[in-house]
C-alpha cells in the first residue's frame, strides 16, 4: 500500500498542473467563443450543425460551444496515456516501483481524470445550453448519449464519465502495447486491423455505437465490460514489459 501511495504521488506530480493548464486554455477558448458570438455573431470555436430546415426563411443551424471541448479532451487522454508509459514508466520502474503498483496508479489517475473532466464538461454543457440561447442562437442539445436540454446534470456527468473511462482505458491499453511492441504494433494494425475494418466495418460500427447510444442498463454494461477488458489486457501487457533503454 505504501508503495502504491508513492507511485500515486509520483504520477500525480504533473497531473494536477496539466489538468489546470488544459482547462484554463479551454475556458479561455470557450469564453472567447461566446464573446465572438456575442460581438460578431460568427467566428466562434464550437459545433455548428445545419440541415434542420428553416424558420421564416432563416436557416436553422444548431450550435454548441462546449461540445467542441470533447475533441481536445480525447487528445488529452491520448497524450496523458502515452506520457504515462513513455516518460513515467521507465523512471518509476528504474526507481524501484513494481509494474503492478505503477499500473494501479495509472488506472486510478485515468479514473480521476475521467471524473474531473466529466464533472467540468457536464457543467459546461448545461451552461452552454443557456448561454447559446441567451446569445440568440439555436442550441444543439442532443448528443446521442445524452441530451443537455432534457437530461439532468447528474445523468450528463455520469454518461460523460463512463465514455471518458472507456476511452482512457482503451488509450491506456494502446499506449502500453505501443511501448511494449514499438513500431511492430502499427505494422500489425496496418496489415491486419485496417483491411479487416475496411472489409467488415465492425470496429467502426462498435465504436460508433459505444459513444452515440444513450446510456441505459444494457449500454452501461457493454461500456463497463469494455473498460474492464481494456484494463485487464493493459495489465497483462504491462506485467510482462521490460524497461527499454532506447525507445
Amino acid at each position: 500500500m505504501e508503495s502504491l501511495k508513492r507511485a500515486l504521488k509520483f504520477q500525480g506530480r504533473d497531473f494536477k498542473k496539466s489538468v489546470w493548464m488544459f482547462w484554463l486554455v479551454l475556458f479561455i477558448v470557450n469564453i472567447g467563443s461566446y464573446v465572438s458570438m456575442y460581438k460578431f455573431n460568427r467566428g466562434f470555436i464550437g459545433i455548428r450543425v445545419s440541415g434542420y430546415g428553416s424558420i421564416d426563411g432563416i436557416d436553422l443551424t444548431l450550435i454548441s460551444v462546449a461540445a467542441a471541448n470533447l475533441v481536445p479532451i480525447m487528445i488529452f487522454f491520448i497524450v496523458h496515456c502515452y506520457e504515462m508509459y513513455y516518460e513515467y514508466f521507465p523512471v518509476a520502474i528504474s526507481f524501484s516501483v513494481t509494474r503492478k503498483d505503477f499500473y494501479k496508479s495509472a488506472v486510478i489517475y485515468n479514473l480521476i481524470a475521467s471524473a474531473v473532466f466529466a464533472l467540468i464538461q457536464g457543467i459546461l454543457m448545461k451552461a452552454d445550453l443557456h448561454l447559446v440561447q441567451y446569445l440568440g442562437q439555436n442550441i444543439k442539445s442532443d448528443f446521442g448519449i445524452f441530451n443537455s436540454g432534457t437530461d439532468s446534470i447528474i445523468f450528463i456527468v455520469f454518461s460523460l464519465f463512463i465514455c471518458f473511462t472507456v476511452f482512457a482505458s482503451a488509450m491506456n491499453l494502446l499506449s502500453a502495447l505501443n511501448y511494449k511492441f514499438g513500431y511492430r504494433l502499427w505494422i500489425v494494425i496496418a496489415l491486419l486491423g485496417i483491411p479487416y475494418s475496411a472489409r467488415t466495418g465492425i470496429p467502426f460500427e462498435l465504436i460508433g455505437r459505444l459513444f452515440t447510444e444513450r446510456i441505459g442498463a444494457a449500454q452501461f454494461s457493454i461500456l463497463a465490460i469494455t473498460a474492464i477488458a481494456c484494463c485487464v489486457a493493459g495489465f497483462l501487457t504491462v506485467s510482462g514489459t521490460n524497461v527499454k533503454d532506447r525507445l
Partner: peptide, 21 residues
C-alpha cells in the same frame, strides 16, 4: 518479481543514463 515489499528495498544505479529526457 513484482513484490513491492522486496523491490522498495533495492536501488540500482545504472551505467546508462537515467531515463529522463
Amino acid at each position: 518479481y513484482e513484490n513491492s515489499k522486496a523491490v522498495e528495498n533495492i536501488c540500482l544505479v545504472k551505467e546508462k543514463s537515467i531515463p529522463v529526457d
